[in-house]
Design a protein around this nucleic acid. Structure first.
Lengths: 344, 344
DNA sequence: AGGCGGACCGGAACCGGTTCCAGCGACCAC
DNA sequence: GTGGTCGCTGGAACCGGTTCCGGTCCGCCT
């Protein structure tokens, strides 16, 4: 009921003209367009997206695969994606995929391979060759946001320069005179050098060795889950040990930093007088904690990913083919009150 | 390419039989079914959901409208919804709608009214009459999760008993002998008595007056944003005032409680010796903070909402028409180390 | 033996749009 | 005046499935 044929009949035109009038494609006289629109409004007509995409092959729907929704960064990205897609008239279908396993295969083989989505945005997940190939075969553009490095000819990638971020944060502490400076890294940082945590770790090492401080194995780098409890537990252990304590900590994310701050307080270590802490993210709670951090804009990254994907889909007049797809997204150091000059 | 007609041709049967064989509806001989399946596998056939839903009217897709994704409760619900829908073979289309405004209208009128979704799950948003009516008119089942009260004949509702939760938390503190006991409520608690924060506030008042403690206007209830910085700011102000401090705080959510804990520490007030704090949620960080809280299971609530919606859609043999849709979802008090007996 | 029911299969209609193609006036240029 | 272009419109094919309807064929009952 209320199909386009009804509209056409009521307006006294053919289905073809009605379609043209409503979709705005092709030539339609101004007066007939108005007639059709009036008829459509009168009977409350709305197009069937299924029918439309059946013939056009476009669904106006983007699949988003994301490993967590409840970690700040990812939630923020998701919001950015959603808002931007919505205002472009696109739907967002969510696939919460973490790690490997049958669920993940199901998503890629059953859900994403079908014609339901025009393109896929993967945030913070490394697609396997097989997964990429499957999508490629169906002509589905893929944009990867965060993690990994711009592959030779892989999918379009987007993100901040995590290695530079690690370097920047570490240099800030070095400039303040710290030398006993440990890195609270994300788990898997050493094992997966191209992951976000791996790159940040690498940046830390770069800065340290540039300063002539070969971080001795000991406990210069501690890996932990990138959450507040993760940072709390790791810092508790690190700072609770006897012997000379570090005077500064570079935490792989703000949430880890929050945990470390709390651990320090619990141990009676004063931040920043006895211990400087810097994080990365620009978490919405950073201000409350007074955390010095390297800010990024996850929602802005979401927006950028959508822009890119729409360009790949050929929307928006494409002024230039694929501009600056190499340039990393911006970050900046925000100094607050968790860092200060090293005690001498 | 690779339409069902190709499969049929390759298998030497008609489109009709191929469809029956693949979808499992109707009678098909075991041997032909195998032939068809083999043919489908050979050419890598996958159905076009658009074509299928065009004729069946079912999209296997559920719309979820949610005000935040980056608040713990909502993120957790979303994960629960996603996992459960996925395993039932449904897609989840996300609509991030906060408050009113043109964006919200757009979602309801443009996106949800179309035939793209079979049903709508609204979490933590109160649908207006108009919005409900629009969905009703298109025969789209609606399930509302959290907030509000079971309306007379409105949509199916689901959630915990927030008033009982407020009562339970308050009673715990009362039983420990606290009498100067303030409530850190969510913003809008007084103005919107049927909101989550409104109901929790009501539960607090119930328990107080049952204990003969008419909470004097003063500062017995302070409203604040239901986030960690919100709780931090409110507690800082509340506890920093001269005069007799409260000995216990009931925070409207765990995140508020975390903020309050941090504020207390910052002011040199010892938790729990000088101040007891209880929250509600069962946040994943609660254990780290040692927070006493009234736990709920948001992901479980997501699962329940999906079960309900699938039942409304007539999936799953519907054993009973609509069982116990009134019973609130479970909660329980978990006592940790932020609450203790009141000082005398 | 004849009738009946049920399993199995194919042809064709249909879901609701979009788009190709052809037709038709109107207008302009030669 | 005639041919060509252009704006507008309608008929019909088509996208890729599902399902109604009817026709065989077989087994079984009476």
């Amino acid at each position: 009921m209320t199909a386009i044929a009804d509209v056409a009949r009521l307006a006294g035109v053919s289905k073809a003209t009605a379609s043209r009038a409503l979709s705005g494609r092709g030539h339609v006289a101004e007066t007939t367009r108005r007639k059709v629109e009036a008829a459509a409004a009168e009977i409350g007509y709305i197009v069937s997206p299924d029918a439309a995409s059946l013939v056009t092959g476009r669904t106006k729907n983007i699949g988003v695969v994301i490993p967590f929704v409840n970690r700040w960064f990812f939630g923020e990205v998701l919001e950015g994606l959603e808002r931007t897609l919505l205002s472009a008239g696109y739907d967002l279908t969510l696939y919460n995929v973490d790690g490997a396993g049958p669920d993940r295969d199901r998503v890629f083989e059953f859900f994403l391979a079908r014609k339901r989505v025009d393109a896929v945005i993967a945030v913070g997940v490394d697609l396997t060759e097989r997964e990429l190939a499957a999508l490629e075969r169906r002509d589905k553009p893929v944009v990867v946001l965060g993690g990994g490095e711009a592959g030779a000819l892989g999918p379009a990638r987007l993100g901040i320069d995590d290695r530079a971020v690690g370097q920047l944060a570490t240099e800030h502490l070095l400039q303040l005179g710290h030398t006993r400076l440990v890195h609270l890294a994300g788990d898997g940082a050493a094992a997966r050098p191209l992951s976000v945590q791996g790159l940040r770790r690498h940046g830390y090492l770069d800065a340290m060795s540039a300063a002539g401080l070969a971080p001795r194995g000991r406990a210069a780098i501690v890996e932990t889950e990138m959450t507040m409890p993760g940072g709390y537990g790791a810092a508790l252990q690190l700072l609770g040990q006897p012997g000379r304590r570090p005077t500064a900590v570079f935490a792989a994310s703000d949430e880890v930093a929050f945990g470390a701050i709390r651990a320090a307080e619990r141990l009676g270590i004063s931040v920043p007088h006895d211990l400087s802490i810097v994080g990365v993210d620009g978490h919405e709670y950073a201000e409350m904690f007074g955390l010095t951090t390297v800010e990024q804009s996850p929602s802005g990254q979401g927006r950028a990913a959508v822009d890119l994907v729409l360009r790949l889909l050929g929307e928006g007049a494409e002024p230039d083919p694929l501009p600056d797809s190499g340039a990393p997204l911006p970050t900046r150091l925000v100094v607050r009150t968790t860092t200060m000059r090293a005690p001498n």
